[in-house]
Amino acid sequence: MKSTTTILKRELRGYFTTPVAYVFIVIFLLLTGILTFYMGGFFEREQADLAPFFFFHPWLYLILVPAISMRLWAEERKTGTIELLLTLPISTGQAVMGKFLAAWAFTAIALAATFPVWITVNVLGDPDNGVILAAYIGSLLMAGGYLAIGSCISAMTNNQVIAFVVSIVGCLLFILAGLPAVLDFFTGWAPQAVIDTVSSFSFMTHFNSISKGVIDLRDVIFYASLIGCFLLANTLILDAKKGE
């Protein structure tokens, strides 16, 4: 536990000693701003909520989170520092966890930096702040899911570009699983159970209910087990690579 924290601190500090953090946060804010106010029709709707803000998060994360996660292991492998890290007296799982938690904490910081949107809606109207808080939590959970997938994929290669592209495709599958267009493909011939299973793997399905203010335990469990599974796979991949 202590070692995990030490790794976490080093990693998190690493984001801010390079331009990565600042570039990422600025672009994240810029894109959320454009999407919310122009494409989401935030003002035209004349409703005091942040639905147009959160609506785009699954799509925004699809590009931005792999940009964070692609470095996690691919860069360590490329620069050789993985040899330094994995010969420290820590388990592979602690290293995976420390790096993941740092990346997650970093996305939490980027998400927290969107607070002007929240202030805006509170100045303009009288929103349900409970719903907004729930949606923020849901968004963070979803970011964790994307990150775990991306971290796992990053462990397979020493090429960050490959890690980036494959992670986008991997995350996209988890979005698509919940889109009506995809589910329609199954309706009519596949049993309802299959459709339900497919849609139950979707980030969309689990994010939509949370972003409406309902924190359902099942959604939380979904994200927690998704993160757990991918980080476990991440650890197993790293250990398997030692034996290659």
């Binding site: 030490t6 790794i7 080093r10 690493g14 000693t17 620069t79 520092t81 420290l88």
Partner: peptide
Amino acid sequence: PLYPDMTPRTLLEFIAEVR
């Protein structure tokens, strides 16, 4: 191999702590 974005001081502090 060393973390390029660290300084010798922060690196040694990190290694000493984990070790």
